[in-house]
Amino acid sequence: MITKERLDPDKIVDTALAFADAEGLAAISFRKLAAQHDVTPMALYRHFKDKDDLHAALADRLIANVVLPEPTDEPWDRQLHALLTAFVNALRAHPRLADLTLPRILVAEPGLAMAERALELLVKGGFSVDDAAEVGRQSFCSLIALVTTDPIVREVNDPEAREASIRRKRAGLGALSPERYPLITAAADSLICSSSQERYYEVGIDLVVAGIRGVVA
């Protein structure tokens, strides 16, 4: 039996992350975590008062994994692109938990540092402080959605079941009339699942930054 002193909250978070990555957020329970660490569920309550507290710790871990780029002499939008890419990269490691991060950005210290840097760049780009706050909030929301709606992540984990699901979707679009829907049928494979996950994220981040430039213009 692991004693109170040996029950490391960081290791509990590690285990919870593994459960969520494999089965989703709903797979995390104090009972399963306790069994994994050979303790009673009550032992976990010494570190996390409830499931919401544990979820906050998971979100904080993701945000802490954001590697903020150092300031450079590049234009503000290029630096912002690098910052947003760093945020997305951290979320991609645990996409099923990306939704948890938004309410923690302005609570966790790493999130505050990231938000301050983003606001600084937006103000440098010509936004007022209030407009920078709104643009920043919506940009982070958009990128969280980009991760949670990743077509590859949204498919089931089992490779055979994933391939079967993609085949069914491909068959559905393949049954459409190319005369009536020429572009949909031509782009069927890309519409069903992006041919490149890297390209999927590159386009998503580029669109957000391009939109920000368009708003300030």
Rank of each mutant, 00 (worst) to 15 (best):
I212W: 03
G136K: 04
Q79E: 15
I144W: 03
V39W: 09
D21F: 02
L173E: 01
G172P: 03
F48S: 03
S139H: 01
L106N: 13
R61I: 05
A164G: 04
M1E: 08
R180Y: 09
V147K: 01
E202F: 06
P151E: 00
Q197S: 15
L102N: 06
A26L: 12
V39I: 13
R199P: 00
R31M: 09
H37K: 13
A98Y: 02
P178I: 02
D53Y: 13
G214S: 10
Q197L: 12
A64T: 12
I166F: 07
L173D: 00
M1I: 10
A43D: 07
R170E: 01
V39F: 07
V135E: 09
E202G: 05
L97I: 10
T148E: 04
P159R: 06
E155D: 12
K49W: 06
L191A: 00
E134Q: 08
V153N: 12
V135C: 12
A20R: 09
R180S: 08
A145D: 10
A16P: 04
V13F: 10
R162F: 00
I12H: 10
A26I: 14
D77F: 13
L44K: 03
P69N: 03
R61Y: 08
A188P: 00
K51M: 15
R137Q: 06
T15C: 13
A27H: 07
V209I: 12
K169N: 09
V153I: 12
L173H: 07
A187K: 12
Q79L: 06
T185A: 02
